[in-house]
Design a protein around this nucleic acid. Structure first.
Length: 453
DNA sequence: TTTTGAGTTGTTCGA
DNA sequence: GTCGAACAACTCAAA
């Protein structure tokens, strides 16, 4: 270990523990921890995620003893300049497999190479890096189940310990940080930082994992891991969770969720065009556009469709910057199959508001719902909002929590408020909108369109 | 090469 | 209430 200097370029791996790139940097010499504020990424992110990122950076800065360098600008130029300024021979980072990240990193590699410096990737944000899990004939998987079997069979690396006694370089100047926006989520930020990630993980593993297989589908109960923003920003790594999981039914179910995360990252890496393009070309259905469609889209975003479980989910998104996964499916299905609006519009809305918004998972979750994605299976799978509500929010508590106009309607009757006794649908409940569409009719319409494609 | 079994998360209808 | 069948046809992955 000489007196060399290495730049540790943090991107979406904002932690000190189990960070192989940081371990490599510390082995290379003294370490300059760097984060580059990149306007290209900030713009589609929305105020919630930018605010969360900034708070996470505060946490990271404390964890690196105040040495964190924050700069603003085009990453290839900024990283090159910082590396030159501090005399680093190598820049270390976790590999990014996203469509934008790859281009950015290629440009950065070239810029550094021009000065005789190296950009070196160690690790990735995934348990298994995209492009690693392959079929027997060496091609990438396009179906989840065989992917997940191979993913499990091949396994993943164990976590690495946080490096001991990193020699942080202090005194390297930062740019003023871009203004931190006020979160749009009325309830503010979820817990932030590496320490909070471990608290969430410990709570999940001790209190929730046992019943996870069943309870994870219940939006009325707070029984999911709540780890998604941490996984998004890398304040915890999936392999750290996998190392603690065990093999109970709940643990296996949760591991499968992590496999989905890896699968969708893999799919996006093999088909970067699918951020916008349908994964399956032939699934080119007709979407509604124009003023009437815009009006329906706005009703959806505001949680005023007249379908209680849909409205509850959309209002939860506005209030918390997060939505329960079951309800993400219900609201997405409603936009695509009841309102016949392009999945890309819904995906962009989710990305604007979600603290955990991740391009790969969000895009391909929406493509799955729209029937354009990796699951070639039945397009006739159209969610019935009332039935989903009764099944997964059986007491109606979730709806009443997020749609206060309906508080006076008891039990599961809240899922179809206008079909109950007239005297219940009065008072403040009368301000709740009538359904903007007839579900049965729109279901038929959706099936027609998918048949005609 | 050809064949075979299977494909996260559903709904409706009729018995 | 519960249960099984039907809802298209196609693509994927492995044998």
């Amino acid at each position: 270990m000489g007196d060399d200097v290495a730049v540790m370029w943090f991107r979406r791996d904002l932690r000190v523990g189990d960070n192989p790139a940081l371990v490599a940097a510390a082995e290379a010499g003294r370490v300059v921890p760097l984060f580059v504020h990149d306007d290209v990424l900030a713009r589609p992110s929305g105020a919630n995620r930018v605010a969360y990122l900034h708070a996470t950076l505060d946490s990271l800065a404390a964890d690196v003893g105040g040495a964190l360098v924050e700069r603003t600008g085009v990453p290839s130029k900024v990283v090159r300049a910082v590396a030159a300024e501090v005399g680093a021979s190598v820049v270390l980072a976790a590999e990014d497999f996203g469509p934008y990240g790859r281009g950015r990193d290629d440009a950065t590699r070239q810029a550094l190479a021009g000065d005789g410096r190296l950009l070196r990737f160690v690790g990735s944000p995934y348990a298994v890096a995209p492009g690693t899990v392959k079929t027997r004939s060496g091609t990438p998987f396009k179906v989840f189940t065989p992917f997940s079997q191979m993913w499990r069979q091949d396994g993943w690396d164990d976590p690495v310990a946080a490096p001991d006694g990193v020699r942080w370089v202090r005194g390297v100047g930062s740019d003023p940080r871009p203004e931190t926006p006020s979160p749009e989520a009325t309830e503010g930020l979820p817990p932030v930082g590496e320490h909070a990630a471990w608290e969430a993980a410990e709570q999940f593993l001790s209190e929730r994992i046992g019943a996870y297989k069943e309870d994870r589908n219940r939006p009325d109960l707070d029984r999911t891991s709540r780890l998604s923003p941490h996984l998004k920003f890398g304040t915890i790594h999936p392999r750290q969770l996998l190392a603690l999981l065990g093999d109970s039914a709940g643990a296996t179910t949760f591991a499968t969720e992590l496999a989905w995360r890896d699968f969708y990252a893999d799919v996006l890496a093999q088909r970067p065009d699918t951020v916008h393009a349908n994964f399956v070309d032939s699934m080119d259905v007709r979407w509604d556009t124009g003023d009437a469609a815009d009006e329906r889209f706005e009703a959806w975003t505001a949680g005023r469709t007249g379908f209680p479980i849909v409205d509850a989910g959309m209002r939860q998104l506005l209030a918390e910057g997060w939505m329960h996964n079951r309800v993400r499916m219900i609201t997405a299905s409603f936009l695509v199959k009841d309102l016949h609006i392009d999945w890309r519009r819904g995906a962009a809305w989710f990305m604007r508001h979600l603290f955990d918004g991740d391009v790969a998972s969000n895009t391909h979750g929406w493509q799955w719902t729209a029937g354009t994605g990796t699951d070639a299976a039945p397009f006739f799978r159209v969610f019935n909002p009332a039935l989903q509500g009764r099944r997964f929010d059986p007491e109606g508590d979730y709806v009443r929590r997020h749609v206060p106009e309906l508080r006076s309607i008891p039990g599961k009757a809240v899922h179809e408020p206008r079909t109950g006794a007239d005297d219940l649908f009065s008072g403040e409940a009368s301000s709740y909108p009538a359904p903007i569409v007839d579900h049965a009719a729109e279901r038929d319409e959706a099936l027609d369109r998918y048949r005609q494609r």
